[in-house]
Design a protein around this nucleic acid. Sequence first.
DNA 1: TGTTTCATCTTGCGA
DNA 2: TCGCAAGTTGAAACA
Lengths: 261, 261
Amino acid sequence: MTVEVEASLEPGLGEALSQVSEALKARAWLVLAGNCETSYEGRAASGSTPGDRVVMVKPDGSVIVHGPKGFKPLNWQPDTSSVEARLDSDTLELRAVRRSPREILVIRCARIYYLAVLKGAEEGGFWLYVNEAEIRDEAMRDPVGVLGERLRFIEAEKPVEPGFIDALAEDEQGRLVVLEFKRVKAGEEAVKQLLRYVEALRARTSREVRGVLVAPDATEAARRLLERSGLELRRIDLRSLYERIKGRSAARRRSLVDFLG
Amino acid sequence: MTVEVEASLEPGLGEALSQVSEALKARAWLVLAGNCETSYEGRAASGSTPGDRVVMVKPDGSVIVHGPKGFKPLNWQPDTSSVEARLDSDTLELRAVRRSPREILVIRCARIYYLAVLKGAEEGGFWLYVNEAEIRDEAMRDPVGVLGERLRFIEAEKPVEPGFIDALAEDEQGRLVVLEFKRVKAGEEAVKQLLRYVEALRARTSREVRGVLVAPDATEAARRLLERSGLELRRIDLRSLYERIKGRSAARRRSLVDFLG
DNA sequence: TGTTTCATCTTGCGA
DNA sequence: TCGCAAGTTGAAACA
């Protein structure tokens, strides 16, 4: 194993400074818990008075400050040009600077509960993901299997006045079919967008144009608007789509179904 | 001080399990570094093969998994209904479940480099920030200072057909002025929105209607559309606005300018 | 580099 | 719960 760990419990600020400085120089992965205040100035200006924080400085220089609540960090700095540490009036001060946009994040810790340094951390293996484009591509590859209908696909990402149509196809009756894909439950907004595309297309052709929203589900308001607008909803099942798409990839791995029971 | 810390360096999995379980039960703040693999299934499906990770479970149940690079976590789970730990075939397994949307995140750690538990962490003090509403309010309070023009404000957040006008005012010539505020560089989208409001208002009144985009800057495309549409751009300076707004607040604190030098 | 679009967006507010 | 808008959004794709 290549990973080296070093940690201190409630270190003094002087001790902390030397460990932090060394970690930054070595481009190690630094995790620090302490009572800190933060200030940010750049695209906006913000700050927080002292509170308990977990501060992380990654090997690539990203700085992230978490409070005890929520998914989002309190402050951060993604593309730092420099991260520096020093002692300033009884605090350990970290300054993360970014050029373009010019931003500065200052973290001042009056007390440090815990400090850990990881050296030689490795990124690890690849990453699977099913996104909207993959759903669309799967539908184009096998319209009957995914949409339950024989369609001939004409174009994906077709530019039409208000933006881009996810996919344009032709059905067996020769009608144009505008397809809008959603990976999550579709709201009213998705229907409005689909409607804009359908209307834009109808204005430019004498052919009949259908609009189909492809999503796992739709909200009540979305369904009403579909109904009123004469548009269609095709439900898809993410799980089985995931299996179809990923099942084709060479490296097959255990499904989460195992865990879900 | 109320924060209690407990930490282990390279604990065995059994030892780690008991500490983790206890931390979860006590709703403590858990930070763990190890070699882990992750699987997520819910709104999407994703996963990563083993790699070095820092895993955080916050007192509110949020779970965040970071890899050694970048601002964004590899996996996360914001509003968990349950987080559980157990040993499974030589790994420490964490399962974070959320209902609605139904999602599950599974983290399996084969090795644990270190583990820290923080109890009694406090959110800490308030949070300063300049947002769009504050810019708007400051402009309404002092139109000459912020916009360089005498305006009489009629209404903020006025509902008009497509949505809400940020602010509606009247200029010295008695013309209506629709104001759209942006805290960051304005894109074409902001101009389109402003234009929709201006046109909606013109359709409902015989009075002359001006449209003013208030922003630190605008993209080239946005400026062209402003020009073509006969709308105006008023540039503002965030830094000085921040000083104006925050300077008024009772608790005056050191400016970041001190650090920027 | 700038601009646009996507995201397991998150978050907050309101109906 | 749904709809909507803002975010230091970040990150990727594209011109």
